[in-house]
């Protein structure tokens, strides 16, 4: 098809959609719409993980981000009753400044990364690395101590969120 392989088509479509939805997250007026566009962005990124042979990570990404974190965002937004009318807007001049700063950052990064060596992923691609068995081997052999630390971090976040979110702290 037009000289491109099917994987290149998938990559191009997923990238286009991811960038479009990411732009919609930033530019949509209604916070609820922003959350929904962010969920769509996460689905596109999960598709990229599938292209990269990281199957287990794609599933975890959808479960954690689209399933848990975004539902939390939606709950908070709906509890606060935010909508288009209450949405604060920055002045035009500061929006332009933000755009110019972002554009300059983009220019610098693209300029730096443009000259890097073109390494094809296919010559290294290996379908086994993203499976649960191999990831579990790496996680529980090389990264056992960080894994335990993460459990402590999550416990601390749990306790902290409950303490902060309580109605009255006596």
């Amino acid at each position: 098809m037009l000289g491109y392989t099917i994987t290149q088509w998938v990559f191009g479509i997923l990238s286009f959609l991811a960038i479009m939805f990411a732009l919609m997250v930033v530019f949509s007026r209604n916070p609820v719409n922003s959350v929904l566009y962010l969920v769509l962005t996460f689905f596109c990124i999960a598709g990229h993980y599938l292209v990269l042979n990281a199957q287990f990570l794609a599933v975890v990404h959808i479960a954690v981000y689209a399933g848990a974190i975004m539902v939390l965002f939606l709950f908070v937004i709906m509890l606060m009753n935010l909508n288009q009318d209450t949405e604060p807007q920055k002045t035009t001049i500061s929006k332009i400044i933000a755009g110019v700063i972002g554009g300059m950052l983009l220019l610098v990064l693209v300029g730096v990364l443009k000259g890097t060596e073109q390494i094809q992923l296919s010559q290294y691609g290996h379908s086994e690395i993203g499976l649960v068995k191999n990831l579990g081997n790496v996680l529980f052999k090389e990264f056992l101590f960080p894994f335990e630390i993460v459990s402590v971090l999550l416990l601390a976040a749990l306790v902290g969120a409950i303490m902060i979110g309580k109605k009255e702290i006596k």
Partner: peptide, 28 residues
């Protein structure tokens, strides 16, 4: 499954998404 995709494409895509996020932090 990976055919004809170089690492540079992913570098560019990540850069663009990162900068959209950075602009969002500055502009909202």
């Amino acid at each position: 499954m990976i055919n004809g995709i170089s690492i540079n494409m992913y570098l560019m895509l990540s850069t663009v998404i990162f900068i959209i996020g950075a602009i969002g932090v500055m502009a909202r």
